[in-house]
């Protein structure tokens, strides 16, 4: 007996049954199992694992009127079937093109397109079955992260998650978060959500989540704010610090370059000598300092005064005028 045939029969029986079936029921109903005993148990356990890996939602329920209770199994149709998204052929073709152009490996995109009905009609490439344009190409490949799938599931189910999050000093802390949104920008995945302990909106870098994401099952109560829109946000806006408004003076020679990096939403006003003063929301002080220093002597932090002092202390260490320990005690801002 072919294993594929047995798995298909098992799935058919589990979908068809209105009440949970015991392992013994299944052994009798499904063709291809060994006789009762250890060999059957091993085969059945392996089959259950296979179904779960395939994403088949196997329910385990107590069989009614059994004492001591016995586990029964079934598949609820509503859990199993894909709600028909009602895609038109050109929409399916567009999804196909998207998966070829912006690739994410290892998440089963090919199987996902099978489930939605394969490639649009026609064996030859054509308007219905587009190929990526060779010049513009398979434009990019996006890295994936083990935390993506559980976080996406929690967002879809509007549930609270818990995870250990590494800080920049080499430690880590347990965070409890209502996840809102996953952003890919600057080559990295970020989670935005409501931090229940810190009682505020926070951003987390997925590559700094330590270990696995725990699904608490608790419903989320916060309402996600509107997405920030089409423009990517700079690194200093995506942090887990409280947002501070910084004022930065940039010389005329670099004002345009800086404006492009700061994004279109920052407020500007004229500064001295034809320069521009930018008012910048900062949620990561160290990333902002790094950006400002990248502008060398073309830029100057005006406010907050503490950050101005911090930058001076930092530079005095580089210039060798002061020791590292002085800088640290001088308030490196962390």
């Amino acid at each position: 007996m072919n294993k594929l045939e047995r798995l298909l029969n098992l799935t058919a029986v589990l979908l068809d049954t209105p009440r949970p079936l015991t392992a013994e029921d299944l052994r009798q109903k499904v063709d291809g199992y060994p006789p009762a005993g250890a060999a059957f148990h091993r085969a059945f356990e392996r089959d259950k694992d296979d179904l779960r890996v395939l994403g088949i939602p196997l329910r385990v329920e107590r069989v009614p009127a059994t004492d001591p209770p016995i586990d029964g199994y079934r598949i609820e149709a509503d859990d199993y079937y894909l709600p028909d998204p009602g895609l038109d052929p050109d929409e399916l073709a567009a999804l196909h093109l998207a998966s070829l152009t912006v690739r994410l490996d290892g998440l089963g995109e090919r199987e996902a397109l099978w489930k939605l009905g394969g490639m649009a009609d026609g064996p030859e490439p054509g308007p219905e079955r587009p190929q990526p344009d060779p010049a513009s190409g398979a434009v990019t490949s996006i890295p994936t992260d083990p935390a993506l799938e559980p976080l996406f599931q929690a967002i879809a189910e509007r549930r609270v998650v818990r995870f250990d999050y590494a800080d920049r000093q080499g430690g880590s802390a347990r965070r409890t978060v209502e996840p809102w949104r996953l952003d890919f920008q600057r080559g990295r995945w970020y989670l935005t959500g409501w931090d229940r302990v810190r009682e505020g909106e926070r951003n987390f870098r997925l590559d700094r989540i330590v270990g696995t994401v725990e699904q608490t099952g608790e419903p989320a109560t916060s309402t996600p704010p509107p997405s920030p829109g089409a423009q990517p946000r700079p690194a200093w806006e995506i942090g887990d610090e409280e947002t501070v408004m910084a004022r930065l003076l940039v010389d005329a020679a670099r004002a345009e370059t800086a404006a492009r990096q700061l994004g279109p939403d920052v407020v500007t006003e004229p500064g001295r000598d034809g320069g521009t003063i930018f008012t910048v929301p900062v949620a990561r002080h160290d990333a902002f300092r790094s950006f400002v220093l990248g502008l060398l002597d073309h830029a100057e932090i005006l406010e907050p005064a503490a950050w101005r002092r911090d930058l001076v202390a930092w530079l005095e260490v580089v210039a060798g005028r002061r020791q590292l320990s002085d800088a640290a005690s001088g308030g490196a801002g962390r």
């Binding site: 994403g55 859990d79 894909l82 998207a98 998966s99 489930k115 799938e149 996406f152 879809a156 996953l182």
Partner: peptide
Amino acid sequence: PLRLTPGQGLAL
């Protein structure tokens, strides 16, 4: 068809 897994939905 069977539902998309969270990973498959996310990828698309």
